[in-house]
Design a protein around this nucleic acid. Sequence first.
DNA 1: AATGCTGACAACCGCCAGATT
DNA 2: CAATCTGGCGGTTGTCAGCAT
Length: 297
Amino acid sequence: MGRSPCCEKAHTNKGAWTKEEDQRLIDYIRAHGEGCWRSLPKSAGLLRCGKSCRLRWINYLHPDLKRGNFTEEEDELIIKLHSLLGNKWSLIAGRLPGRTDNEIKNYWNTHIKRKLISRGVDPQTHRPLKEIAGPNANAAASHLDFRNSSPPSFPVAAGITAVNQPNNDVHNFATLQPKTESVEDANCTSSGTTTEEEPPQLQNRRQQQQQQHRQEACEISELNLELSVGLGPFQAESTRLSFGNTAESKLQQVPFQSAMVTQAVCLCCHLGFQSNGLCGNCQNSNGFYRYYRPMDS
DNA sequence: AATGCTGACAACCGCCAGATT
DNA sequence: CAATCTGGCGGTTGTCAGCAT
């Protein structure tokens, strides 16, 4: 098996880009748009790997990029998002208009890490450093933090306080998830059922209506997720604007995970489905509630 | 002035997931 | 269904400027 290299390494330039290369890339993308990165270098007359072109465009040449120092607000937003998402730089970047994942990643490693450490906060877990290094280090370590895991492998019960789970029913989070997913599953999937008595036109019409309702419900669901992240107004705007791409669809899951580590309330309430602190949806078969307490509590 | 150290950031590398063949 | 391609992501490295000695 094995993969063929993404480009002819022998005939590609490496290292810093020259002004001419930048200009070629800009001119080509202006003329043809962002398309097939693999064939772009050849078409644009660049002796570069397609990946390299893509990176150069996204991280440096893209016209929407906001150059310059990060503001205090951006700092705090990055810290907040990192505490929710972990090292998901692309998702974090998606919430910071004009900033790239690479830029944020670099900024995190060079500035924010230090900033958090100076505050006495562990930059990886967002927990107090003394708590991690102290005599209860084992207890702290047992407080698993899976935020750096990819969403599919994310142990859904991470952050659940075992104190309230005498039956250690922490792997049972799927029973909770449907409350959220049911909104999406029931409304966002295309598996509508129709009665056989209906004529085809009526079925089509009904399906269209169902589709429309699903769409509306999805939008409401997205709004809930948006609120659950609790971003500022301009971020909420960018959230709405960018919900079409795949990264955002991933993020639809992530705030859900995020909720698990941010609020000591039941998840349904956290997501806005219930108004009280605890609800029946978050009560497991043993009568215990699934709720989350903040990592730094 | 020369050297070494550190911080900042651009760029590369390897891997993965989804799409395509 | 397997092999392959492609775009994207996160971690890491390389390079350079600024500063201290």
